[in-house]
Design a protein around this nucleic acid. Sequence first.
DNA 1: TTGTACGCGTTATCAG
DNA 2: CTGATAACGCGTACAA
Lengths: 340, 340
Amino acid sequence: MKPVNLKKLAEELNLSIATVSRALNDRYDIAQATKDRVRELANKLNYEPNPYASSLRRHKSRTIAVVIPEVANHFFSLAINGIEEIARGNNYHVLIYLTHEEYQREASIVRLLAGGRVDGVLLSVASRSHDLNHLDLLRERGIPMVFFDRVHADMDTAKVTTDDYESGYKATRHLLDAGCRTVAHLTLAGSLTISRRRMHGYIDALRDFGLPYDETLVVPAQLSKPEDIQAIEALLTHRPAIDGIFACVESLAMCSYEACRNLGRAIPADVKVIGFSNLEMAALLDPPLTTITQPAYNIGREAARILFQAVNKNRPILPTHSLELKSELIVRASTAASPR
Amino acid sequence: MKPVNLKKLAEELNLSIATVSRALNDRYDIAQATKDRVRELANKLNYEPNPYASSLRRHKSRTIAVVIPEVANHFFSLAINGIEEIARGNNYHVLIYLTHEEYQREASIVRLLAGGRVDGVLLSVASRSHDLNHLDLLRERGIPMVFFDRVHADMDTAKVTTDDYESGYKATRHLLDAGCRTVAHLTLAGSLTISRRRMHGYIDALRDFGLPYDETLVVPAQLSKPEDIQAIEALLTHRPAIDGIFACVESLAMCSYEACRNLGRAIPADVKVIGFSNLEMAALLDPPLTTITQPAYNIGREAARILFQAVNKNRPILPTHSLELKSELIVRASTAASPR
DNA sequence: TTGTACGCGTTATCAG
DNA sequence: CTGATAACGCGTACAA
């Protein structure tokens, strides 16, 4: 109701506002006795500095933004966890924004952020984000940004990614080694670097194995889960030879399970499935899902760490600060080799 | 780099700062022609008002805080989703804070928030939060708060919960009807209302069925997942008669699956399992998990809606604004009745 | 060691 | 209809 501010403290202590301010900021030119008196009253009254006045003065918001496609997704949840951890260590606050994979939403969020609400931005690009013009605003305003996982390749900043090409290659190779000869690839809509690199790994693995690349085996994500399931069912029906599915994201792996179940295809006997996923319970699925698992928590931590290096030292972020972490192939029953 | 502010716009347009401000805020006392001129330049220069200056002046931060135990959890992810949706509709920003179930962390977060950083708080209590003294600060400062899911019963504000007692009763009854006679209950640590109510349902269902309540069958969550699994294994080993497990939260249901697997107990033949969960892929588990599923997304939406009613109209939130939504029992194979 | 006075960018009040 | 001017609460030169 009645805010406790410097003025109030100053009045009660018979000091000037300036002195109280300096005492609380532990400045060298204030007597220890005064500092103690001020601190004591501040604690007693539960004084908290008004963050907005402080931000206005210091040109620092002590806030960062995390912009992601969605939160109901284990990868992003874990990443947020890592980000929050680092932010907290730096005494920073974390604003969260969801784009729901939409370009418009991403653009309008970025426009807001360019107003100076945050000192830095962590961004994972929406799959339906076709260009990066909207991000220029941040650069113009000198707001540092770090991409994580889903990046715009030709953007002049740091990116924290995983070895997507290698993972795509390994995943595909794993299916081929398990006996698959017609491998479908379920990918994100749009042309994110992440999907391109994973797909590239897929294509190269096929080629190295002596198999042709058939682009009709590549299906992009639809707008909703039911549509995805339907699309996969259609694919499996039209192309009965498909004996392997490589899903670029977790949700598509789950949709594959449902589609197979609906069509009565047995996993792994009829179709083997591998998917990118951070789901802890992949091992408890029926059958346990073979996954490419990204170090999501660390991706969040590292992206935040890079951002704070720039924020705290007022230095720009360079593309050379980028980091590529390793994903892990965890083999489970969904890709068990078929008996001949 | 060089910020675009009202002063700059005013200079370029040969208008006063005040006029520009009013034009942008679409005040009635500004000529349409002027408004148009101002708008045009503002758009051209990508002007965004400095949110901190505005907050300072208006005593409104256009920001709310969401304080939750963790984010890598489907329930909270979905709730955030609902909250973000409503916040966005109100042109509000969402700060996120994780307590990791710790009282200290919750307290220090609340202290920060009391400084006026936010116009309102949505809180889901940490399980190791033993009292609510730390929340008094918010009340003193007149910052509205709404609890969701995990509430402090004797706090004088609105709460959005689900029918936990009924759900606990239904879950237990379901196990009993499926043939269980020794039902263990895995609950959260501490004594949250939510766990108490679910446990109450458990106890009453046992009683109504003519079974005694054996408190050694009730096991609280430990500090980590491995510890939880170990605790469940110990329970199952010491009490071989256990033929049913009712898990109060998702993670404990998953731990039960792992424990049963480790011990070679078959689900549902040896032990039936039911758990609170918002996991979409519960149906894809081995075996598919019977769940009590809460309307997480709607809980988030409703909690946010109640909060914004207070925030926008400057009215206090009353306990009478509380809401109780219904959870759903979704029967799957993990509780299939055993053949006699 | 402490106080005075100004400015951060915006909005509100009061004149004109 | 528009312009000066005074806050909002805090941090910091400059004075004392």
